[in-house]
């Protein structure tokens, strides 16, 4: 299953790579790609991964998910 996350607060490339790293550490996440230009993250996850887990992973490194949808 693929999810699209709108992420707020990323100012630079290292922000994007931080978010990416944090999302990758969530159990059940298969692949992550966070775009600094688009301010969006595309996450391939197992079906049992909850949206909250992803939102919290982004929050943990200091950014905010403003929207999440199935892509």
């Amino acid at each position: 299953m693929k999810k699209k996350l709108n992420i707020e607060g990323m100012h630079c490339a290292s922000c994007a790579s931080n978010v990416e790293r944090s999302l990758k550490n969530v159990k059940g996440v298969k692949s992550v790609s966070v775009g600094i230009m688009t301010k969006k993250g595309f996450v391939e996850v197992e079906d049992n991964v909850k949206d909250e887990d992803l939102i919290n992973a982004v929050k943990k490194v200091g950014y905010k998910v403003t929207g999440i949808e199935n892509a």
């Binding site: 607060g9 100012h11 931080n18 200091g62």
Partner: peptide, 19 residues
């Protein structure tokens, strides 16, 4: 402040960023 805030969070979480 937005820059400091983001930068300080980086120090706290050890996920450093350019801020």
């Amino acid at each position: 402040w937005t820059t400091l805030n983001s930068g300080i969070k980086g120090f706290i979480s050890f996920y450093f960023n350019m801020d």
